[in-house]
Amino acid sequence: MSNLVSIEGLTVTFTGRGKPVRAVDHVSLEVEKGSVLVLLGESGSGKSVTLRSLLRLHPEKTSKVSGRIIVDGHDIMALSKTGIGDVRGRTVSMIFQEPMLALDPVYTLGQQITETILRHENVTPEQAHARALELFEKVQIPSPERRLNAYPHEMSGGMRQRAMIALALACRPKVLLADEPTTALDATVQIQILLLLRALQRELGLSIVFVTHDIGVAVEIADKIAVMYAGRIVESGSVADILHTPRHPYTQGLLASRVERAKKGDRLKTIPGSPPDLTALPPGCAFAPRCDKTTAACREQVPSLVTGAYDHAVACIHA
């Protein structure tokens, strides 16, 4: 089997204050070795929650997770605390939107990377330092030797993002999880980071699961795209299929409303309404209240994801 990541029936319910919120609802997906899967969705679509489940990052007290997650042969849900600790960083690691929150402000970047390597692997400090330097070169940080001695706040946004990628790659993971890593960056820097991730993915044979709300970014980096809405995958397929022949009304609406495709001054075609309230989802298809194809059947049962030709799957009874 070439699937490095396989998720089956993942359901995540948050039970903190107030009503329980089902953030992810029976999500199943697979990521092949050395490929990039983009989870595309708006706020509240469950894309980040799905991603975090892969590292079991949800607080155990206030969340209920069910389903099966297998990453490189590890059954994530069944692992012990030490077991999941071994997987984190070594098999799967993660980069975030805001590197300042992921990096420790009181240590230099070099210290953080060497420390991570020393904790996970049986190497000498010199070897770890050499590896840190090599990583900084790999993520194309100019004058890497000097930057290893810098503190996170001394670097610009793009450089910090590169440093975080270096830290994430410190223990040669097989899967990299990326949670909107370019959203806070300028377009000129965003494209640099996307190109870097693509180069690293090719060079190291990484699998990447990349979460974004921006179709443009998805098209630049993805092999496959899974579109999420209200905690469910509504459509998945290759980039070209999603982009050129979208089958779910939500994907179609999303693409139709893009300003890139409109002439100046035109009225944009829009999806009416706002993203759904996860505490009060309608029965049946969650998109039905905003959809122009809705029939009575849509409101009765949640449509299942049906796979068609070329692995292009869609969850809509009208598609």
Partner: peptide, 16 residues
Amino acid sequence: SMPKMDPSERTIEAPL
């Protein structure tokens, strides 16, 4: 630097 919206014409080199 803007994303190209076409998987067959992806950016190959960063403009800046």
